[in-house]
């Protein structure tokens, strides 16, 4: 059985496969950002729904989510960053100190850095509009950096997420030199000629 089906509840596997094989498939994209104060769960539907796996309500995006990243991956690629762009239109803002509040939110690194972020898909029955099966992950990672910009007419928050495997333990500037290696493993001469060769060596292969 393919991995995708294993993650679906057994009674609904046939239904899920049937829906996927159709010419028109109703599927929503969902974004989960686990902020410390309150988890954000959005979807690209304009009607909220409750998933069958966790029982969470996925709210309508309401225009909040303005940019989704391109997802790519494969054997020969490093786990890349994803950048989500969250737009806040002017008419949503009713506090006078909204700019300061946003900057403060972005500055409160502890409330988001290292916390879960996930992009999921969910199939729906076209007739009833109800979810079928469990959500399936497109991308799972952790939140990293957040920045805010204030174009005319509102604000846009850029949020970078990264894979669990990305950039962990990477040396400063992303370069592992001969001297770095010697400091960690004094007898290792493996990187002796790397600098002279002028080659970037990619170790990871997941």
């Amino acid at each position: 059985m393919i991995e995708f089906l294993k993650s679906q509840p057994a009674p609904q596997r046939a239904r899920v496969m049937d829906l996927l094989a159709r010419e028109a498939v109703q599927m929503s994209v969902m974004l989960h950002l686990d902020f410390a104060s309150e988890a954000l769960r959005l979807s690209n539907r304009n009607i909220p729904f409750t998933d069958l796996k966790w029982g969470h309500e996925w709210g309508a995006g309401g225009g909040l989510l303005v940019g989704l990243p391109e997802l790519s991956g494969g054997d020969d690629q490093l786990a890349p960053f994803r950048e989500f762009r969250l737009g806040i239109p002017n008419e949503w803002i009713d506090a006078e100190t909204w700019m300061a509040d946003l900057v403060e939110m972005v500055g409160d690194v502890g409330s988001y850095r290292g916390r879960d972020a996930g992009l999921y898909g969910q199939l729906f029955d076209s007739e009833s509009g109800q979810p079928v099966g469990h959500p399936f992950a497109f991308d799972i990672g952790i939140m990293d950096r957040m920045s805010v910009s204030f174009p005319r007419g509102g604000a846009i928050i850029s949020l970078t997420t990264e894979s669990f495997m990305a950039r962990k333990g990477v040396p400063v500037y992303g370069m592992q030199t001969y001297h770095d290696q010697k400091r960690r493993h004094p007898t290792d001469e493996g990187l002796q000629f790397v600098t002279e060769a002028g080659k970037l060596i990619t170790w990871t292969d997941w």
Partner: peptide, 22 residues
């Protein structure tokens, strides 16, 4: 709005859609 990866070799196209009608 719906999206599609384009027609397959047999000319059939799969359309992905969400309840985003306004």
């Amino acid at each position: 709005a719906s999206s599609t990866p384009g027609p397959g070799l047999d000319g059939r196209t799969q359309v992905l859609f969400s309840e985003n009608r306004v």
